[in-house]
Design a protein around this nucleic acid. Structure first.
Lengths: 238, 238
DNA sequence: CGATGTGTTGAGCAAAATCAATGGGTGTGG
DNA sequence: CCACACCCATTGATTTTGCTCAACACATCG
């Protein structure tokens, strides 16, 4: 059940069998949330560390006048809040995008394990650093690419990261976000996302199945976005 | 000489006198670089950790067609590459913006100290996390604020962070970036930055002294930007 | 004193936002 | 099983923000 979490850590860090056994035997509690449920709110003092076992979640921040920016998307296997091991108050909110299954670990237990096993400490750190690297790529994406490239780039990353941890994804990946969420992700408006999706469908990069949209031609998306996965640091060992 | 570095770490983490003594007695080499000199290039394998003692540096990333985005600005006292303790290859470049003085530490020595002193390990982590938090705020800034708010917000952060570590800043802070650099920082064009600066001067938030621009009314900037420093996590202790 | 890099300004343009209306699924409750 | 409500997607018309292009000014430095 923790398998997907261990697979995520192993995608960037070396862990011994013993490390993995210790991680898998951490005390925890299972929780299922519905779309849009909050996992953590800005200003909260977390005492637990949720791990995302299935479904998708995201981090978001707001500006005074109500606009929001989704600053990170978390996929199955991703730890959701290693940050609270070290920072007292949350600087952003964390919310479920789809229905999600979480394994919730007490911070204290995780802290002990991190103190005892340097491999695990390192994997926590690398996970934090990879997320920061993704954030920088998003800065570049939002700041310097036009709408078409921006959407294409995000979808390349989504596809790449999904295939890193989720098993049995031979077929085309379906995009689970609403167009409004994509807009908040990319610093655009929903209307413009709608038109940009349409263009990507016309170019054959995406395909429609009723209201659902799938990635039809990942190579085409890569070409449009100028995608290169270096920033994801996914060669095991960091 | 390391004082400013220790002050930076103490701005977010608790360090004992002994921790500070150990940090200050790390082996190191002084280096002075000129504006635009590279400190680290994307793809490099770092073996040293530079600490910025004076001057300003920045991280940047490029898109295929030549556009660049400055994804982080580093101020006196900031460690420049803790990341290389844990990740093999750099995912961005690091460059001097002004003339800079660096203390360059061998990674191995720093690694040993981090392994030996949990306080220091924690301060390294918190420093990494605070930078990530700043990155998220920049995502929000670039994605959801207009040019005026965006520039104002960046300048608020610049002022705030400068006062955190640099001594003797009673007077108004001067903006050391060219308008082109500000453009690459904020996802705008130099021409538009020029007009936006003009507006901030008209509103009394900035003042001109020849070609130099200073922050004249920080409260006014705060108002325009809707600035709140929570994301900087600068209460000592994280 | 000329070269260069940076700042400034104007005119026109393009990308994306805004406003507004419509349509289509889905799910719920009568 | 149908009707309604709601959310989301879609489309068109119009406006706005910021970009592009181009010329020029000014300061600094060799």
């Amino acid at each position: 059940m923790f398998d997907i979490f261990l697979r995520k850590l192993r995608s960037h860090s070396m862990l011994t069998t013993e490390d993995q056994r210790l991680l898998a035997s951490l005390p925890h509690q299972m929780r299922r949330l519905s779309p849009n449920d909050y996992i953590l709110r800005e200003g909260d003092q977390a005492t637990q560390c949720p791990i995302l076992l299935s479904g998708i979640a995201f981090r978001q921040k707001h500006v005074a006048d109500g606009g929001r920016q989704i600053v990170s998307v978390k996929l199955p296997g991703d730890p959701l809040d290693f940050q609270s091991l070290y920072l007292a108050t949350a600087d952003h909110s964390l919310q479920a995008l789809t229905a999600v299954d979480l394994a919730v670990l007490p911070l204290a237990a995780l802290e002990q394990l991190v103190a005892a096993r340097s491999n695990i400490a390192r994997s926590v750190l690398v996970d934090i650093l990879v997320e920061a690297s993704i954030g920088r790529e998003w800065q570049l994406n939002i700041g310097r690419r036009n709408a078409l490239e921006r959407l294409a780039h995000f979808l390349c990353e989504f596809d790449y990261r999904m295939r890193l941890t989720v098993r049995g994804l031979d077929e085309a990946i379906e995009i689970p976000m609403t167009q409004e969420q994509l807009a908040d992700l990319l610093g655009l408006t929903p209307v413009h996302i709608n038109r940009t999706v349409k263009t990507l469908v016309e170019r054959g990069a995406l395909s429609r199945h009723g209201r659902r949209v799938r990635i039809a031609d990942i190579a085409c998306l890569h070409r449009i976005a100028g995608f290169s996965p270096r920033y994801l640091h996914s060669g095991a060992g960091g």
